[in-house]
Amino acid sequence: MSRAGVTPARIVGTAADLADADGLAAVTLSAVARVLGVRPPSLYAHVAGADELHAALTALALDELADRADRALAGLAGRDALAALAQVHRDYAREHPGRWAAAGALDRPVTDDLARAGARHHDQALAVLRAYAVAPAEQVHAVRLVASVLRGFVQLEAGGAFGHSDPPPDGSWERALDALDAALRTWPPVERSRDRR
């Protein structure tokens, strides 16, 4: 592959494929350069360094997830929308484990692409909440709950945590979605503050 064929999109795509094949930790500038058939310094014409490469990979994964979620959420509301969004994340993690890991690695420099991709996910979560009576001041807490349950379950499943006991995890998945749906339907109408003194 010639140096002329190296573009930012190919670099990030190669990084994504490496992450899926060998894990997110395997994504280095040297490894990407090796796959592309160039010397590592050649990549610096397109990415400033490893931090920028990883931020671009995270943005790519978030965009791919958001594209799938846009299609899955069309015309749905309530628990159906919640389940569709959740299934997108679960399926993506199974198909693209390295990209899934990158999508959750948000300790990256906040580039314009990363901010835009993150905003898409925020908007999708708010769209799911529209069918529930969650007050605007409480929506951030509801979004965090949904994200925590989905990422936690999928990450545990991907790591093999549910493979050592019966029944299979699908029943637990449905119960988790039922519990989230119930929590959103009965969300407290006002923010509860606690005296931390």
Rank of each mutant, 00 (worst) to 15 (best):
A72M: 07
L73W: 03
G75N: 09
G75S: 09
G75D: 03
G75R: 00
G75C: 14
L76N: 02
G78V: 08
G78H: 02
G78A: 09
G78M: 00
R79M: 01
R79Q: 07
R79W: 01
R79T: 04
D80H: 05
D80T: 05
A81I: 01
A81H: 01
A81Q: 09
L82P: 07
A83C: 03
L85W: 06
L85G: 15
L85R: 11
A86V: 14
Q87A: 14
Q87L: 11
Q87N: 11
Q87M: 13
V88W: 11
V88K: 01
V88A: 13
H89C: 10
D91R: 14
Y92E: 12
Y92T: 14
A93P: 04
A93F: 03
A93R: 06
A93Q: 05
A93H: 04
A93I: 10
A93S: 02
R94M: 00
R94C: 12
E95W: 05
E95N: 07
E95R: 11
H96N: 12
H96D: 05
P97I: 06
P97G: 02
W100G: 00
W100P: 04
W100E: 04
A101G: 06
A101Q: 06
A101Y: 03
A102M: 02
A102N: 04
A102T: 09
A103T: 05
G104A: 07
G104Q: 14
G104S: 13
A105V: 10
A105S: 04
L106G: 12
L106P: 08
L106H: 08
D107V: 07
D107E: 15
D107R: 07
R108P: 00
P109I: 05
T111C: 05
D112Y: 13
D113H: 01
L114C: 07
L114H: 11
L114V: 00
A115L: 15
A115R: 11
R116L: 14
R116E: 15
A117P: 06
G118H: 13
A119V: 08
A119Q: 15
R120C: 08
R120M: 13
H121F: 12
H121M: 15
H122V: 13
H122W: 02
D123V: 15
D123T: 14
D123Q: 15
Q124P: 12
Q124H: 13
Q124R: 13
A125Q: 05
A125E: 09
L126Q: 10
V128E: 02
V128C: 01
L129Q: 11
L129P: 12
R130N: 00
Y132F: 00
Y132D: 04
Y132E: 01
Y132W: 02
A133L: 07
V134Q: 08
A135Q: 03
A135R: 07
A135H: 03
A135C: 03
A135K: 02
A137L: 10
A137Y: 10
E138L: 11
E138N: 08
E138R: 09
Q139S: 13
Q139D: 04
Q139M: 01
Q139P: 04
V140G: 11
V140K: 08
H141D: 12
H141L: 10
H141T: 14
A142M: 05
V143F: 01
V143H: 00
V143S: 12
R144K: 10
L145I: 04
L145Y: 02
V146L: 10
V146Y: 01
A147F: 09
A147C: 11
L150G: 02
G152R: 04
G152N: 08
F153H: 01
F153E: 02
V154W: 06
